[in-house]
């Protein structure tokens, strides 16, 4: 059973990567109190999601979804996730920008970028 699981995972190594990277990102967010580190973690988390989309679009022996007229035997990869991810990348960057802006402001106000050193702000 374990063997079949391993075999199944080897066949889906892309997803394994997604899970691992995603969890590294989440772990960073939890374990690091540095605000910038948290954003780095967030970035890793986001790219993991992107990877998920891109890898699921891929096909064995496929080509990029740029139609070549006449070439009927070509297998194109799924273009839709690519489109979606173009949006997601931009969204991620914007989030990062806002987060970093907040970090800068926090540093200006509190003189630290470590969350555990910020006094008196409890949830």
């Amino acid at each position: 059973m374990i063997e079949s699981l391993i075999e199944s995972l080897l066949l889906r190594y892309n997803y394994v990567m997604v899970v691992v990277l995603m969890l590294i990102g989440i772990y960073a967010i939890i374990a690091k109190s540095n605000l910038i580190k948290k954003i780095i973690g967030l970035n890793i988390f986001q790219t993991a999601i992107l990877l998920f989309y891109i890898s699921m679009a891929d096909v064995v022996g496929g080509t990029a979804p740029i139609i070549e007229e006449g070439a009927t035997d070509l297998v194109y990869v799924n273009p839709l996730p690519h489109t979606l991810m173009l949006t997601a990348i931009v969204v991620g960057v914007c989030t990062t920008a806002v987060g970093l802006a907040l970090t800068v402001r926090i540093y200006e106000n509190y003189g630290t970028i470590h969350e555990d050193e910020i006094p008196g702000v409890e949830a």
Binding site: I54, D58, H82, M85, I89, V90, V93
Partner: peptide, 15 residues
Amino acid sequence: EMNAVDVGFTEAAVG
């Protein structure tokens, strides 16, 4: 390499 050319280039530029 996964045939997502547009995304790859965007990531390189943006990410």
